[in-house]
Simulated assay, not measured.
Amino acid sequence: MEERRQHQRRRTDLTVEVYDRHTGASLGRLADLSSDGFMLCGAQVPAADSVLECRLVPLPPLHETGEIHLGADCLWSRGGQEGQLGWAGFHIIDIAEDQAAALEELISHL
């Protein structure tokens, strides 16, 4: 499979929860992150081709980095089997300049 990512994704040992900004529903937890995308795992991951406004929330909070708000397009999604987590890959499509700076700060902690 051809690699199309422009930025290397970094796996995270930090706990970063991802929430839908409109409903507050948990979308899952970050598995990896780059400045242009992320992969998450969760009990009920969004469907492919979903466009969502997300909140990325580091736990415990990092002093320099609060919540990060961004828009993301779900490129692919694989639900888990009974009792297992599902996975989904996202491309970041909308992020304000200050939020992009916060995202880079979060990436520096990975």
Rank of each mutant, 00 (worst) to 15 (best):
E105A: 14
G79A: 12
Q8S: 08
A101G: 00
R9F: 01
I107M: 03
R11S: 11
D98W: 02
T65G: 05
A31I: 09
T12H: 03
A100H: 06
Q6N: 12
V18D: 01
H7S: 11
C74Y: 09
L75K: 14
S35R: 13
G89M: 06
R9S: 02
S108I: 00
E97T: 12
I93M: 04
L30M: 14
H69T: 09
L103N: 01
T12D: 07
I107P: 03
T15M: 05
C74D: 08
E105P: 01
G28Q: 05
E64A: 15
S77G: 09
G83H: 07
L62S: 10
S26P: 05
L70K: 04
L85S: 04
A47Y: 12
A96R: 12
A101I: 05
H91D: 10
G83Y: 03
D32N: 15
R5I: 04
H7W: 10
E64V: 15
T65I: 13
G71A: 03
T65E: 08
R29P: 00
R29A: 03
A88F: 02
L33A: 10
L70M: 14
M1C: 09
P58R: 06
T65K: 02
G71P: 07
H63C: 10
E67C: 08
R5K: 13
E17C: 01
P58K: 05
L52Y: 07
P46V: 15
G86F: 06
Q81V: 07
C41F: 06
R10A: 12
L62M: 12
R55A: 13
C74F: 09
A47F: 13
H63D: 14
A72I: 06
G83C: 03
H69Q: 12
A47T: 13
L40G: 14
F38H: 02
H22T: 08
H69P: 01
E82D: 06
P60K: 09
R29W: 08
L27P: 09
G86D: 06
G89V: 07
Q6C: 00
L33R: 02
R11N: 10
G71K: 12
G42H: 11
D98Q: 14
G79R: 09
A72D: 07
H91G: 02
Q44E: 15
V45G: 02
A96W: 00
Y19I: 01
V57L: 13
P61T: 12
L110C: 11
S26L: 15
E97P: 03
P60Q: 13
H109N: 04
H22V: 04
G66E: 08
A43H: 10
L85D: 06
D20R: 04
L85P: 01
A101F: 07
A96I: 00
L59K: 11
P46T: 15
G83A: 05
L56V: 06
